[in-house]
Design a binder for these strands. Sequence first.
DNA 1: TTCATATTTCAATATTAGTTGAAATATTAA
DNA 2: TTAATATTTCAACTAATATTGAAATATGAA
Lengths: 113, 113
Amino acid sequence: MNNTSVVKALAALAQESRLAIYRTLVEVGPSGMPAGKISESTGIAPSSLSFHMKELTYSNLVTSRHESRFVIYSANFSTMNEVLGFLTENCCGGNPCVSTSTQTCLINEEQVS
Amino acid sequence: MNNTSVVKALAALAQESRLAIYRTLVEVGPSGMPAGKISESTGIAPSSLSFHMKELTYSNLVTSRHESRFVIYSANFSTMNEVLGFLTENCCGGNPCVSTSTQTCLINEEQVS
DNA sequence: TTCATATTTCAATATTAGTTGAAATATTAA
DNA sequence: TTAATATTTCAACTAATATTGAAATATGAA
């Protein structure tokens, strides 16, 4: 993961609405949630939500699938793991750190695949 | 650390210039770097740098101290640790994750104190 | 004090981001 | 086919961000 895609991911999360959306999707897990229900549970207007979902999808932090007339969004845990890895791997000027393991949600990732 | 301060920290890092500045300070470690040298090594104009340093300072990702007529900036590792903690602690909907330890740069933190 | 250095502030400008409501598109049900 | 539901796109607007160069401030040296 390079500088630009990390900036993209950080920018996607650096906004109240999108952080709320993302955390909702993280909580609900790999099964995901349809756009309408995200709109309802976060109080974000549908058109505004659509705008934010594009940002989150573009940064690869969420993925979507179609089911009937619903679009189901779900968190992409591996992107978050890569971002956390990037933010920690460059610390301490190459000197060893005490603990830099940042793998998260491996259980959910396994359920997805 | 609450929602708003996490958004603030993410927003501070979600910008090419500031991510470059921050990583420079992370690499140089607790001894820090004067504003002029950051400007020089990143190629960011002094007035623009000053703007970005305020953002990074406001979000508590960097701290500054005065030494003679220099202002020395250094990375605040504990804020980064808190942000990483926040982003991982809420994952998996309360279900246990394989690994969520995200402590980084404890060595440097110890050197600072 | 006067000058040089280091940094910040300010004004002007350009770009980007976020919200709203209406219209458009797509899918399913009657 | 017609109507209802789910989501996206669009235009208009407002607010926030980023950059530049000039001026201001502050510290230290001659």
